[in-house]
Nucleic acid binder design. Sequence first.
DNA 1: ATGTCC
Length: 483
Amino acid sequence: MKKKKTKEAIKKLTAKDLHSIGFPTGKPTGTALNIVHTYFTELGKNHQLELVQDVLTAPDQYKLHATLGPLAHAILNHQQTAPIDLKPDKQPYTIYGAEGIEEGALKQMEIAMRLPVTRGGALMPDAHQGYGLPIGGVLAVENAVIPYGVGVDIGCRMSMSMSMSIYNIPTSYLDSNRVTLKQMLLDNTRFGYASFKKPMDHPIMERPEFHEIPIVHELKDRAYSQLGTSGGGNHFVEFGIVEIQDEQNDFNLPLGSYLAVLSHSGSRGLGANIAGYYTKVAMDSCRLPQEAKHLAWLDLNTEAGQEYWLAMNLAGDYASACHHQIHGRLAAALGENPIATIENHHNFAWKEKDYSGKEFIVHRKGATPAGKGVLGIIPGSMATPGFIVRGKGEAASINSASHGAGRVMSRTQAKKTLHKPQVQQFIQQAGIEVIGSDLDEAPMVYKDIHQVMAAQQDLVDVVGTFHPRIVRMNGDEKYMEVD
DNA sequence: ATGTCC
C-alpha cells in the first residue's frame, strides 16, 4: 500500500517538471498545477506536460478554452510584466575569509548586490550556497524585505544558559554524572517529528497575529504542538563547559569554567510555512530575471510586506519561546537557576540605522548580529569548540559575524564519503557523547572553526569558549518515545 | 530548515 503511494507521488506532475520545460516561477506554474490536478488527473504525466506546454507556446489560442483559459491568461499576464532589471555592474561588498568560500556562494552574493533595492552587503567566513541569498550572507536593502534573504528557518537562534554546578569543579560534575545528564536530555528535549505529549503553555500562543493573519492562523495548532521542541539538520541541545576568558565579561562572572546548556533551533513548521507562503507571494508580485528569482522582495509599504514583517517577528519570538522552554525544563531537571544567559538569532531581518541615521532592512541569513557590545554565540560543531562573542560594530560587515563554522561538505556528499566507524572514533577521541545525529552533521563536514574565527577578528571579541560534551540531535529513533 | 507539494 505504502509502495503504491510512493509510485503515484513520483508520477505526479510537479512545479519542478514545469520549470524544466520553461515554465516561469509564480502564478503560471501554480495555475498549471491546479488545472492539471483538477481536470486532467486521468492523463499520464507526459501527456499533462504536453498539454500545458501547448498553452505556454501559444497562450493566445487558449484564451477562451473552458479549462485551460485561466492558464492562458496567467501566462499572458506574466509575459506582459517586464522583469525588474538588475544593476548591470558588479557592486562592491566585503568578504571575510574569502579563501574558504565556495564559488556558488560568491555568485549568489554578487546577484543579491545587484538588486535595485540593495544598499549594502557582506559575506561572512562561514558562507556557503543557499537558496536565493547564500547562508552567511548579509544584505541591507531599502524599505523592502526578501523572504529568502531571511531563510526558511525564520528566527533560528542560539541560546546558552550557564549554571554554577552544585560542585565546586563543574567539569568533574559533568563527567561523573554523564548518565544522569544524558537522561535529562532524553527526557526534556524532542527533535524532528517527535513532540511532547502535553506542550507547556506559553504566552506566545496568545499573540494576536495568530488570529489576525490568515496563514498564521492556519499554523497555530501545529505551532502549539511543537512548542519547546527542536528541529532536524544542524539543530542540537547540549551540555558542555564554558570557559570565561574575558575579565570584563558582561555577566560579572569570575574567570573560570562553568557547566552550560547550549541549544540551536528555530521556528519549526511555523517559520517554514510562513517563509514558503510569503516567498510565493513575493515571486508573484516581484518579477526578477531567472538568476535572481528567489530574491523576490516585498515592499514594506504593501499589505503583504507588512504582514510578512509581523509574521516573521512572531516566528522569531516563537523560536525564542521554544528555547526558553528547553532551557527551563533542563534547569528544573538540574535543580539550578542559570547565573547567566545569552541568546541571539541568525535567520532574520532587522530595521537598523547606518552612521547617518538612515534606516535599512538588514537581512542576516546565517549571520550573527555583531553591533558594538552585542553578545552572540558562534558554535563550531558537535566535537569542536564554540564561542561567546562580543560584537565590535564593524560597518564593513554591517554589524555582523558568522553564525558557525560553515559547511565544507554537502549533506549528500557527507553521506556518500564518510563512514560511521571513522566518525564515531573521532567523536569518542574528542571525549564527546552524541545522542542521535547522522553523518551529515559529523565534525569533518564543517570548516575549521579556529580559521573562521581568525577571519573575523575585526568583527568580534571572544568572551568565552564553549566545549560540547553531551550532544543531542535529531535521529535517535531507538531512544525516541513517540508522544 | 520543512509532516520535505508545487
